[in-house]
Design a protein around this nucleic acid. Structure first.
Lengths: 232, 232
DNA sequence: ACGAAGGTTTGACATTTATCAATCGCAGCA
DNA sequence: TGCTGCGATTGATAAATGTCAAACCTTCGT
């Protein structure tokens, strides 16, 4: 794979502490591919042949059952996905599709496992990454089980506000249809939920959100570090 | 800590491949404690000072938010819990309480992290365990988001049937109140859900379940390995 | 500029799920 | 034995959420 993205990938927590030699070996075995929008990169149930790194664009992880579909995560640069399946050499639990034109580095799972065995720093980083992902997933479960859809939306808006810099005005960065699925509601319901948040100072104009009464929204949403914080 | 449970703990995937010396070192630093029922061992938000191993009894992991509470998992012997928090030295995301009189081995988190650095086999086992837990959590999310409460119950019954040996008759092993919370429904709703499953051959007598029309129930539940299987 | 496609919103309505209140039933205990 | 407490069930009702249909709006390509 070409050199251009290597420095960015190298900076990821997952790869930053491993030896140069092992990193080069991983990269040497990898492919950089460009995909058009709406391409299904992975189908759940497939074996996990590659660890994926999104270096450009965005990728949606979603799951299907019984003719239904739900959005589980949206991966933006620079991040990896399906690490757990790669390490266990187990089938992928989620499908993945590009949302826009995207570039993805594919690292053969075999090499990831080989270098995991050889490089202690890499192994340590993998444990951190897995533990983080695991904890993020637990938080998602708590969000789903303990909150109503309105509360989930309110807290999502606060999180998104933080991600976008913290100002009163920010962009959703996601189609509402997809956001609805992510929050486990229908598009119709999401539309109504936005209206229900108006009394708490949430103004919606297309994908632009303005929060006019920050403290009112926070009082309603009651965000918790044990559900909503990235780093904890 | 006394010797009696060591062989059983040693057999756990997490500890079976590490060196004798390191295992003894871990055990030497540990405590075996007996707790009465309904003791809150851990409160979410607390720092994770110990990796816990249930050797006898059972422990419920649950989470609270905004005066609500939900059951996330029930841990039975012999299993560990809160590994991810231990490794990241991060606050626990869930609370834990004994359901009955229980014995728990407490391994200081510091020692777990120290031996993780020293013992490659232990590190590998930890990665496996984390990846498994992570994947189990993703499956739980899929179960929650893609299924109605009736479908969740039907699939739970099939899983429980398998755990109990696969025969048409088996025990729930959990209070219905707790099962309801685990499945994200109210006790009233669970009670009605059992009735709704009667046409599919589900007979309920207290905590004894009899499945009289296995294939009908399976046709309704549509279990999927990517949501319901332990090992995948 | 125009039309088509698809996302979004709205309204009416159905279904699912929760809440509240009352009762039942069983286990533990005096 | 009978009391007590709590979990389980049932019925009535309310709230939350989903479904369907139509209208609206934006985007994109011809």
């Amino acid at each position: 794979m070409p050199e251009s993205h290597r420095p960015d990938i190298r900076k990821l927590d997952l790869f930053s502490e491993m030896s140069d030699e092992n990193f080069q070996s991983l990269m040497h075995a990898s492919y950089l591919q460009t995909f058009p929008p709406q391409i299904e990169l992975i189908t759940e149930g497939d074996s996990s042949d590659f660890l994926h790194v999104v270096v450009d664009g965005s990728v949606e992880l979603f799951a299907r059952w019984n003719n239904r579909e739900t959005s589980v995560a949206i991966i933006r640069p620079i991040s990896t996905f399906i690490l757990a399946a790669t390490l266990r050499d187990a089938p992928n639990l989620m499908s993945a599709r590009t949302l826009e034109k995207s570039r993805v580095v594919l690292i053969p799972s075999e090499d990831v496992r080989r270098i995991f065995d050889a490089d202690n720093n890499f192994a340590r980083a993998i444990v951190c990454e897995l533990a983080s992902g695991y904890r993020a997933s637990i938080k998602k479960t708590k969000d789903l089980k303990l909150r109503t859809s309105l509360e989930r939306l309110a807290n999502y808006l606060l999180r998104q506000q933080t991600r976008e810099g913290g100002g009163p005005e920010f962009e959703l960065q996601t189609e509402k249809k997809r956001l609805a699925s992510y929050l486990n509601m229908t598009p119709e319901n999401l539309s109504r939920a936005f209206k229900s948040l108006k009394p708490y100072g949430v103004e919606v104009d297309g994908s632009k959100i303005t929060i006019t009464k920050q403290s009112d929204l926070e009082k309603f949403a009651r965000p918790s570090p044990l559900i909503d914080d990235k780093t904890v």
